[in-house]
Structures are given as structure tokens and as C-alpha cells.
């Protein structure tokens, strides 16, 4: 067992939220990812024991969904949308420029383990296209220039918590909607920020 007591306790708490153990699989995989930055075979073994299905069944699910990473990603996972609305609003320029800036091809991680770059399908921010996510925290109304500024800032400051609202304020433009509640919390890892997983934290 490569999970420490704290994590196991958290996992068992999550399992209790579901009618069947195996229903917790998806969330547990996110938890595993928040621990290592990817789904390791060790984590798969632990999860398989926890939910009572075989390891290969866990592996099957974890390799099916692209948000579960099979290899370690950088500290910041840059996901730029390439779907239709963003593409019309020139996301390809954002993609090209970011690739140039980071020196990364699609699904690559840099040697310092700082950035992983990926071009992804729709992230649900069509109203603010083009959009991207940093560790699943969304920034809308981008320009290529702002996207590079964002990455330079990440590179320089290397914040432990990335907050969507902050990044939007400094680097974003038009938003899909502007009536959302202000949210000061952000992602602590490259797993989506869920309160149950404790992968989201308020910034001090």
C-alpha cells in the first residue's frame, strides 16, 4: 500500500458517499491524481482493493478518460481549448504561441516539470472564447499575448494555488457571464478542484 493513512481515510470517506463502492471509482482516481499528478499503477492497486474490482478494470477506466493522466504532468497543466467556438476566435494562434513559448508539443511536459501542454476539446467557456485552463481553473477571453503573459507569470511566481478569478482579472478578457459569485479558492494540483478531494483551497 503506497497510500498513507490520511489519504486512505479520505478515500474511505469518499466511498461512503456512494451507494456502491465501485461508484466511487472516478472520484478516487481524481484523488490519486491529486496525490501523484498522474494515476500510478500503485494507486490503481490501492483503489482496486478499496472498491473491490480488479486492477485492470480500474486501469481500463483510468485510461479511457483523458483527464486521468497516465504520466506525471508538470506543476501547471495548460489546457487550451481547440473546439469550434474557440477555433473561430483564433485559438490556434494561442495554441501555436504557447507551444512556441513553452517549447512543448501536445501532451508533453517540460524537463523542469513546470508545464504540461495540451490542446483539448470544449471546456464549456464558449461565451468567452478563446479560453484555456490552468490546472482546470478557467481563463476566458484570451489573446495569444495574454496567454504568454499568464505563463510567464506562472513561471516567475510559481503560485501553489491558482485561482480562476485572479488569472481572469490579470490576463483574461470577455467572460461567458459575469454574475458568478466571487471565488477566492483555486486548484492546488492538476486534479480538478473539488472540496471533497481537498484539491481546492482558498488563497490567503
Amino acid at each position: 500500500m503506497s497510500w498513507d493513512e490520511k489519504l486512505l481515510k479520505q478515500a474511505k470517506k469518499i466511498i461512503k458517499l456512494y451507494p456502491q463502492k465501485r461508484s466511487a471509482l472516478g472520484t478516487l482516481l481524481h484523488l490519486a491524481q491529486s496525490k501523484d499528478g498522474y494515476i500510478s499503477d500503485d494507486s490503481i492497486s490501492v483503489i482496486s482493493d478499496l472498491v473491490g474490482i480488479t486492477e485492470v478494470q480500474v486501469k481500463s477506466v483510468s485510461t479511457f478518460y483523458s483527464m486521468y493522466k497516465q504520466e506525471p504532468t508538470g506543476k501547471y497543466l495548460l489546457s487550451v481549448c481547440k473546439s469550434i467556438s474557440c477555433e473561430i476566435n483564433n485559438s490556434s494562434e494561442v495554441i501555436n504561441k504557447l507551444q512556441e513559448f513553452t517549447g512543448l508539443n501536445n501532451n508533453e511536459t517540460d524537463e523542469d516539470g513546470l508545464f504540461t501542454f495540451e490542446a483539448v476539446e470544449c471546456i464549456g467557456a464558449c461565451g468567452g472564447a478563446p479560453a484555456m485552463q490552468v490546472n482546470y481553473e478557467t481563463v476566458e477571453g484570451l489573446t495569444a499575448e495574454n496567454a504568454i503573459n499568464l505563463c510567464s507569470w506562472l513561471k516567475e511566481k510559481q503560485p501553489d494555488i491558482v485561482v480562476a478569478d485572479d488569472m481572469q482579472k490579470d490576463f483574461g478578457g470577455v467572460k461567458s457571464f459575469d454574475w458568478a459569485i466571487k471565488d477566492n479558492s483555486g486548484a492546488t494540483s492538476n486534479a480538478p478542484g473539488f472540496q471533497t478531494l481537498k484539491t481546492t483551497k482558498a488563497k490567503k
Binding site: 474490482i53 480488479t54 485492470v56 478494470q57 486501469k59 481500463s60 485510461t63 479511457f64
Partner: peptide
């Protein structure tokens, strides 16, 4: 009842 093979990737 011994699912030791599965689809991997997609």
C-alpha cells in the same frame, strides 16, 4: 468472474 483482461485506452 475473474476480469483480469479489459479494454485499455480508447
Amino acid at each position: 468472474g475473474d476480469p483480469l483482461i479489459e479494454f485499455i485506452q480508447r
